[in-house]
Design a protein around this nucleic acid. Structure first.
Lengths: 350, 350
DNA sequence: CTGAAAGCGCTTACAG
DNA sequence: CTGAAAGCGCTTACAG
């Protein structure tokens, strides 16, 4: 059947418009009978808008199901509601605990989290920073204070508020929330010395900056006691795991039968060491004391319960997020660096 | 000192321009001596652009350190490089494993991940969906298939490709990667029956959809054997933890001394149960067999090592991300639902 | 307190 | 293969 001689059908022609079909600010403004700007200001509670108009705009927005377009907003205002969080690994509970606390604090304030995983690689971090900064994030959270010159320049040059997690720094230009890894580690080593241990090994993996700071604290304590022996530093560059902790204990205890304490650089390794000792019938703490670091979930449930350093990860995440929130609002923060401390948890394994 | 009668200083006046100072596509185009559009096309490898021009544009972009503005891109093209991932909790290793695999697959493909945490709350999920969809994400990954009508409508209405994690579904309109929780649970219960256990308890927490599916599998197996006893379903609505696992075992074993096996709905609880048994001097598996679900890190290190169901979380994350990648490219996917299966890991605890 | 104009930095749709 | 124009949906800067 042909349409010749007939009028065009009344259905609208295929429009090649670029309109996305979403409800826009213009729709809200029209429905409320105000200009687009007034609607924008009413919805953002910016400047003084007549109360009656605000109410009308809000009703219209709700009725239409209006959701502001973050891309348009970011483009026009040069800032977004995205907060970038850079952590070394997703496979380490420590960082997930941090992430959880950050998310819990930032989400209710209207921020959304873009996660970046650096794999402890400075070059990866640099690339992530460059591409994530393009989002004009409202703020950035990074792990630790050690990074490349260019990463530092990107961070500073962007003007985006940044807070450093986990460590503390003397640099007043750096905002950070953390604690002294070395101090905590020294305290644990001194605890082991105070219980009469003399051949104290340090078993570590990953060897990231914070693990090296802990190694440093261990050395300080043993050197001060005149008991430092480099042969008792058992260092492995691969990632931590329960299995590796068990392997470190089993292997090195064979070669160093006189070792009377093992200080694992984190609880993953320490829990693995504890379970391996159980399997091998090695009495803990009688034959060898075992200590960890972080007080991860399960350390208090172990048998014997693990002596460790409780590191306030939730508090670090919350405080850092709170500090960032302040800076994103443009407020000055009282202290640029917050030391949240740590706690020596003496349990049955030492 | 006054400037009267003097010419204006040569320094530029304070410009109230809105320019952000960033390197834009126009800068690249000018530097390469082409139009803005050609630069845009060259950088996106879209349509055919003269090879020589492409090279010139690329050199210029690199030299200027050009990074495309994602907001401008999203606004103009109505799509972004953001993938939204909705998980119930960040404090459950299972979902972090999933997230890790998803991130590992999507990041190299140029996508960035926006995480949303639903806390197992359908209303929270709905709100997250509404606000995250405004970002015009390239794709969405959600956990499970159970959600509100409105959430489903938002998902469908957005037209954004979506893949469901963890479960499988008969609905051919749903894209999903997972396995049958009930089948796996039934198999574990049958394993316990096959080793002669007759009083098998099911200890569970959180009671989310997947836990209830596991409960269902447990019931099926015991009812088929004529051994189902509702008094042996130990259900708690709070979140799982090692401590809760220990508490469930200690408390209920006192009230039900005839129980000869406990099937915990996940490894967190089971590991806690195992450690509590160790503390209480309850012989596993002689006095009571203990089984878990998921094969989380550490379950193979336990003493005795934990019998559990290995759920391929990394594979689920990778496959789902790969399926999403295909759909985001506009390709058809062969199978809308991928069953990755599971594996019964019989170890020493049963 | 309110608004018309311009612009953020890209891509689409069209034309050649 | 290349480009001029228009537009995505907001906010800024200015004016009244």
């Amino acid at each position: 059947m042909s349409n010749e001689g007939k009028p065009e059908p009344v259905t609208s022609p295929v429009r090649k418009s670029r309109a996305s079909g979403r409800v826009t600010l213009d729709d809200v403004a029209r429905s409320a009978g105000v200009s687009r700007i007034t609607a924008s200001r009413a919805l953002r509670a910016e400047r003084s808008v007549d109360k009656a108009l605000v109410a009308r705009v809000e009703v219209a927005a709700l009725a239409l199901g209006y959701v502001p377009d973050p891309a348009a907003r970011a483009l026009a205002s040069a800032r977004s509601n995205i907060v970038v969080v850079l952590i070394p690994l997703l496979s380490n509970h420590l960082f997930v605990d941090l992430l959880e606390a950050v998310h819990r604090t930032l989400h209710p304030a209207g921020y959304q989290i873009l996660i970046g995983v650096t794999h402890y690689d400075a070059a990866e971090e640099e690339a992530l920073l460059a591409s994530y900064l393009a989002h004009r994030p409202a703020g950035i959270l990074v792990t630790g204070t050690e990074r490349t010159e260019r990463s530092r320049a990107l961070l500073t040059g962007s003007g985006v508020p940044c807070v450093h997690l986990m460590e503390i720094s003397q640099d007043p230009a750096l905002h950070c929330v953390g604690f002294s890894q070395a101090d905590a580690s020294r305290a644990m080593t001194e605890h082991l010395l105070s219980t009469g241990r003399r051949r104290i090994a340090f078993a570590a993996a990953q060897l990231d900056p914070r693990v090296l700071q802990r190694l440093d604290g261990y050395r300080q304590a043993l050197q001060a006691a005149g008991l430092h022996d480099p042969a008792l530093e058992w260092l492995r560059s691969e990632p931590s795991s329960l299995a590796l902790g068990g392997e470190l204990l089993a292997r090195h205890l064979r070669d160093h039968p006189d070792v009377d304490a093992i200080f694992f650089c984190n609880d993953d390794l320490a829990q693995g060491g504890l379970l391996a000792a159980l399997r091998l019938g090695i009495a803990v703490p009688q034959r060898v004391a075992i200590a960890g670091f972080n007080d991860l979930a399960g350390s208090d449930q172990m048998w014997p319960a693990l002596t460790t350093i409780r590191t306030p990860r939730a508090e670090i995440g919350e405080s850092a997020a709170a500090m960032l929130l302040q800076r994103m609002r443009g407020d000055m923060v009282a202290a640029t660096c917050v030391d949240v401390g740590w706690e020596l948890k003496v349990r049955q394994s030492t």
